[in-house]
């Protein structure tokens, strides 16, 4: 009978100036029988202030161990791609003030960060599926969703349907996004799904459970999991390459945002979703109304806003209708 083999391995190890080594590690869980050595990689912590993936990494390993005999392949878990960032509540890479998700595919001969990025790409290339878990940022809460570049929609949407997410958002291509990990891998024929869920600096346990269910369902599809897979919900798919499916609520003035609607709420046109107040003058500076019928899938969590700050995103009603047909 197949046994579970576990190891914690270095992905990159680099000496730092003063008596410390920089290290990125992974947790590998694999079946001993050698059969079906397909590989799924769970990546998180590229943005050091996004912690939702931390619970998923833990929970996935816990559930695999519970039914170890059902594993038939390799599960690699990378909980901290940006360990400096996680340690210091920093989104980017501290000391370099760089967004790690803007330096891929990296460069073997480049500086420390470019070198790391290149090693990470090498490490993940060839996996049967990579899941890169993000948690929005500290400003916004997101319903559990997968974001897909329109260039990869044909390949990735059918896979993403199994991930137990509430929304699949296919967005337009942009040159700037060419330096993300997902782009680097998808353009090198390694399928990579980007999950966005919850909010920065916090863990939403129910979202973690929801995604973990999705991971088992994906593993079942890939043949990495022979046990039962949870039934998954049917996501709304927004093919939004032209940018017509989503309304953006940007602050018309600076102030303190008080939200009136939670993420996931259905709203009607002109319904109040929040207001911007001025605690100094005691005035309401703006009432924020839904411009159309739809569902709020992104909500402002961090109350301080300034002219232009994003307060929410609404998925237009027409997208629901399209999904019904």
């Amino acid at each position: 009978m197949s046994e579970l083999i576990e190891s914690v391995e270095d992905v990159v190890r680099i000496p730092l100036p003063v008596d410390e080594e920089y290290v990125i590690r992974k947790h590998r869980l694999k079946s001993s029988d050698g059969s079906g050595q397909k590989r799924i990689c769970i990546v998180t912590g590229i943005h050091g202030d996004e912690l939702e993936g931390q619970y998923v990494c833990f929970e996935l390993a816990r559930r695999i161990r519970e039914k170890a005999q059902c594993l038939s392949g390799i599960v690699d878990i990378y909980p901290a791609m940006n360990p400096f960032g996680i340690d210091s509540i920093t989104r980017g890479i501290p000391a370099f003030d760089l967004d790690m998700n803007r330096i891929f595919p990296g460069n073997m001969d480049g500086d420390m960060n470019e070198y790391m990025a290149s090693r990470i790409v090498d490490e993940l290339l060839g996996a049967d599926l990579v899941i890169d878990i993000h948690a929005s940022n500290i400003f916004l809460t997101e319903i559990p969703q997968i974001r897909i570049n329109e260039l990869n929609a044909d390949t990735l949407v059918p896979i993403a349907l199994h991930a137990n997410m509430d929304l699949i958002w296919v967005h337009g291509a942009s040159t700037v996004l060419e330096s993300t990990l997902a782009y680097a891998l998808n353009s090198r024929e390694t399928n990579t799904l980007v999950v966005e869920m919850g909010v920065g600096m916090r863990i939403t346990k129910e979202y973690g459970e929801q995604l973990t269910d999705g991971l088992f369902s994906l593993m079942k599809e890939l043949g990495i999991w022979t046990g039962e897979a949870p039934t998954v919900r049917k996501p709304i798919v927004a093919y939004d390459a032209e940018g017509e499916d989503v309304c953006y609520l940007n602050a018309p003035c600076s102030g303190i945002y008080i939200k009136e609607k939670h993420h996931g709420s259905k709203v009607k046109c002109d319904e109040i979703v929040g207001k911007i107040i001025n605690p100094l003058s005691g005035e309401v500076m703006a009432e924020i109304k839904a411009p159309e019928d739809g569902m709020i899938f992104t909500v402002r969590e961090y109350p301080v806003v300034e002219d232009g700050s994003l307060m929410g995103r609404i998925l237009r009603e027409k997208v629901f209708m399209e999904n019904l047909t």
Partner: peptide, 26 residues
């Protein structure tokens, strides 16, 4: 602070900008 006060975005990564977008895009 090197980048934008609240969200740490870089104005020199926002051109040509977007007048209905987020603060540094505006």
């Amino acid at each position: 602070k090197r980048f934008w006060s609240i969200d740490n975005t870089d104005i020199n990564r926002m051109f040509p900008g977007y007048d209905l977008g987020e603060t540094t895009q505006r």
